[in-house]
Every structure is written in structure tokens, then in C-alpha cells.
């Protein structure tokens, strides 16, 4: 297990996904890797949280019940254009992921994934954000 950066303050991550069990577990695993995940269980909730707090990176599920992940992405890109968004595609479709990339997402991952892969993408997203 390799945390993002040893003594660095934790990365602030907003995790938007309507699969509650998944969100809870992933948050715990991220916490172990020096990533502080704030949980949002719908697109609407995620956008509301974004209004109140600052984040380094957003992890966004593409398929949710209330709102399409792509719609949420577009709104986030309007609100905070510089905030990197990594998309999680639950249904293994690269096509949707490609659409997300075109809409301004930083990167994408298809579930299930290696946690290390995710951590690498978060690290690279926040690093480029710092620059």
C-alpha cells in the first residue's frame, strides 16, 4: 500500500456515486492512502457540496439514478473549470467514457479497477492541478 504522499496534507476528494456500499468502502480505502473522501450519493448532492467546500479532485460515477454523470460533469466544468474530474464507469463501456473525456474529464476508470491505478490517477490529477 502506497499513500499518495507521505506527510503531505490529505488530498481532498469528492466522491459522487449512488452505490452507497461502494462509496463507504472506497472512502475507507482512500483514507488509508492519505485521500480524504467526501461522500455524495447523487449528482444533485455532489453539486451542492461543491458549492460549499473546496476540493482537489472529483471522482464521479457515470451512471446514477437522479442525473446522468455526464450532466453532472458539465455542470462541474461550468462551476469550477479547473477542477479535475476522474470518471468511474460502472458498465464497462468505453464509449461513454470517451464522451466524458470530450466533455472535459481529466481521466476515466472502469469498475472494477486496481486501487493502485486509481491512486496513480488521483496523484497525477492533483499534481497537474498544483502546477
Amino acid at each position: 500500500m502506497k499513500p499518495v504522499e507521505g506527510n503531505h496534507p490529505p488530498i481532498r476528494l469528492l466522491l459522487i456515486d449512488d452505490e452507497r456500499g461502494f462509496v463507504a468502502t472506497l472512502s475507507k480505502r482512500l483514507a488509508k492512502r492519505n485521500v480524504k473522501a467526501t461522500q455524495a450519493f447523487s449528482g444533485r448532492e455532489g453539486i451542492q457540496i461543491l458549492r460549499k467546500a473546496d476540493f482537489d479532485v472529483v471522482l464521479l460515477d457515470l451512471k446514477m439514478e437522479d442525473m446522468d454523470g455526464l450532466e453532472v460533469l458539465k455542470i462541474i466544468k461550468i462551476m469550477i473549470p479547473d477542477l479535475p474530474v476522474i470518471m468511474l464507469s460502472g458498465h464497462a463501456s468505453e464509449e461513454t467514457a470517451h464522451n466524458g473525456m470530450r466533455a472535459g474529464a481529466y481521466d476515466y476508470l472502469t469498475k472494477p479497477y486496481d486501487i493502485q491505478e486509481l491512486i496513480d490517477k488521483i496523484a497525477s490529477a492533483t499534481k497537474s492541478d498544483d502546477e
Partner: peptide, 24 residues
């Protein structure tokens, strides 16, 4: 089937990862 199966599998893998984390 792809849509419906993949999500539960993703959660299972996630949970297994969490157990792996705990074991460290």
C-alpha cells in the same frame, strides 16, 4: 446482463480490496 452484473462485481472487488487493506 453486463450492466447488472458489473456493478455488484465491482463492489465485491472493492470489498475484497478493503479486506486486503485491513490485513496490512
Amino acid at each position: 446482463v453486463a450492466h447488472e452484473i458489473n456493478n455488484p462485481v465491482a463492489i465485491m472487488v472493492e470489498e475484497a480490496g478493503w479486506i486486503d487493506d485491513i490485513l496490512t
